[in-house]
Design a protein around this nucleic acid. Sequence first.
DNA 1: ATAGGGTTAG
Length: 587
Amino acid sequence: MEVHAHLIILGLHQDARLRNLVVNVYSKCRCFGYARKLLDESPEPDLISWSALISGYAKVGTLKDSVSVFNGIAKADIVSWNAVIAGCVLLESHDCALELFREMNKESGVSPNTFTLSSALKACAGAGNREPGRQLHAYLIRSGFEYNNYIVNGLVDAYGKCGQSEDASRVFKESQTSDLLAFTSMITVYSQDGQGEEALKLYLEMQSQGIKPDAFVYSSLFNACASLSAYEQAKQVHVQVLKLGFIIDIFAGNSLVNSYAKCGSIDDAERAFREIPERSIVSWSAMIGGMAQHGHGRLALQMFNEMLKEGVAPNHITLVSVLCACNHAGLVTDAKRYFSSMEELFSVQPMEEHYACMIDILGRAGKLDEAMELVNTMPYEANAAVWGALLGAARIHKNVDLGSKAAEMLINLEPEKSGTHILLANIYASAGMWDGVAKIRKVMKDSNVKKEPGMSWMEIKDKVHTFIVGDRSHPRGKEIYAKLEELSEPLRKAGYVPMVETDLHDVEEREKAKLLYHHSEKLAVAFGLIATPPGAPIRVKKNLRICLDCHTAIKLVSKIASREIIVRDINRFHHFRDGLCSCGDYW
DNA sequence: ATAGGGTTAG
């Protein structure tokens, strides 16, 4: 403003070039009123000034003004097109950005450059369901922009966010880039796609090329460790960060908290949490969610209260975690209180997820009527999560009617999932309805639905050991089976009786008992006993829900062998210690 | 003058 005043005094404000410069200064200083007025009055406004104004409006969040300035330009040049498209992306109007991009290509006669394409790719990534597409990708190759770092990064990111990790990886490999951001994008794609091993491998390759990682890389890496449940790996990466002298930033810090929690160490998670200098709502949610998964319901609620005391407002995710904490700890009354007052106290309207969680809580606790009432009165159509919760409740409380109804709905919604059939078969079996079991077996055979094989993992140093039921291919297989044999007598004395569940495999009863004793989680625990020093905790991960028989057996093993055994199954953590499990047999 | 990567649940 002072500059403008000065120019007026000097009588120079009529000079077109100076005028435009002043407009730019105004735009940068976010004095858009002045900038626009000067431009409107200007006899020869230049495109540079208009573009600065377009982008300035977007940066303060007023897309309408940004677009209207753009629309007012008689003949837009490349920079003004780029500015308005980037503005749309910045404000997450991805479809608007792509629409403008199309219009530019078709009607304007202006050709896109790397700036335009970079924004267009980011719009594809943001829209999520719109992959870069053959046309755009082909254009990039034709135009020779293919190996530009911004473009490589944009393509990798867009393919990744659209769930096409193979395309992302192909682009990345072909580009042979050594750009930090492209590496980060590729590592992120792998870690979000559940390919933790690949993420860690690429991180090593990046280091061997002498590329210095930053906090962005580490937040993705910790996520990779979380998805692998790789405690030792997480620790190693954490040590590297500390050695590099980074003060962990908030994203990497949150990621680390989550990672330690998902790797089975809630204590390490809490230490990492306490070390975050400015904890955000994400930090608190991660910590509360972690405690919930570990079955520490009361502690999670304490944490939630501590958060409220510090004046941090919960969001919808925090409240899902809070309800989850109540669920895993069987705190029905608390859950009801939080659920019914969340809107009033925290201004968070209950969403589908909160309803699903509440229905799960009621169902598990055996309040099936209350659960159904909530299903019928909630403002949403019951989705797979809701029917899944009801099916689980029906299994626990042996309710055949509810179980078959829920299963029917689930099979319609997710026909490809085998778990539904299996759970329903379990319900029929526990009610002695063997013809029902046989019918399901036939349906599964006819529709080609295969039971997902149960698998368990155990990490020692930086090697992951995989186990499948009855598998003898592990290098120490003989010792593992010997260990199980050795345990069978003390187990029997402690009261263990094999619970031959209805298995959908066509095997003889005797075979079943043998298979049961060699379930993947039992193999992993036995391996843990022989491969780790006495007294060390044993951490196992399973891809499915832990089976009832294994749950009973591992409780007893924890006492017989004086070991803490931590099993992360598909839903939660089980901490076995001294003959008991943290889930209180409620899972 | 206009462009790139990361965190929490189910």
